[in-house]
Computed example of a mutant assay.
Amino acid sequence: MELSFSGRVIEWRGPSPYYFVAVPDQESADIREVAAMATYGWGAIPVAAGIGGTTFTTSLFPRQGVYLLPLKKAVRAARGIAVGDELTVKLTVRL
C-alpha cells in the first residue's frame, strides 16, 4: 500500500524528545484496513517513508485514532527538519 500526505512535525516530550508527523484521518483509516496483515505486534506498522530525497524505514505507532510517523534524528538533520515544519511524506506500508 502506498500513500502520500502532508502534515506538521510535532514533538512528544518525555525522558528524551521524539518527533513525529501524524498520518491524516483518511490515510490512517486506509492503514487500519491492512493493519492485521502488516503489524508485528502492539499495533506498530512497518513502513518505508520518503521526505524529499531522503528515504528511511521505521514503524508507525497508533495514537488517538491516527498513526504517528517517527522522524529519526538522521532524517531530521539531513533535511533540516524542525518542529512545526509542514512536510510531504510518501509512505509504503510493508505487508
Rank of each mutant, 00 (worst) to 15 (best):
E2H: 05
E2M: 12
S4G: 11
F5E: 02
F5M: 07
S6V: 11
R8Q: 11
R8D: 11
R8Y: 10
V9I: 06
I10W: 12
R13N: 14
Y18K: 08
Y18S: 14
Y18A: 15
V21M: 11
V21C: 11
A22T: 09
D25I: 03
Q26M: 13
Q26Y: 10
A29E: 15
R32W: 05
E33Y: 00
M37Y: 05
T39E: 14
T39G: 08
W42P: 02
W42M: 12
W42A: 14
P46D: 04
V47I: 15
V47P: 01
T55Y: 13
F56D: 07
T57Y: 08
P62D: 01
R63Q: 11
R63N: 08
Q64S: 07
Q64T: 03
Q64P: 00
V66W: 01
V66D: 02
L69V: 05
K73N: 15
K73L: 11
A74G: 05
V75I: 14
V75S: 06
V75L: 10
A78R: 14
A78G: 01
R79S: 08
R79L: 14
R79C: 06
G80P: 06
I81F: 06
I81K: 09
V83P: 03
G84I: 02
T88W: 07
L91K: 06
T92V: 10
V93W: 07
R94I: 05
L95M: 08
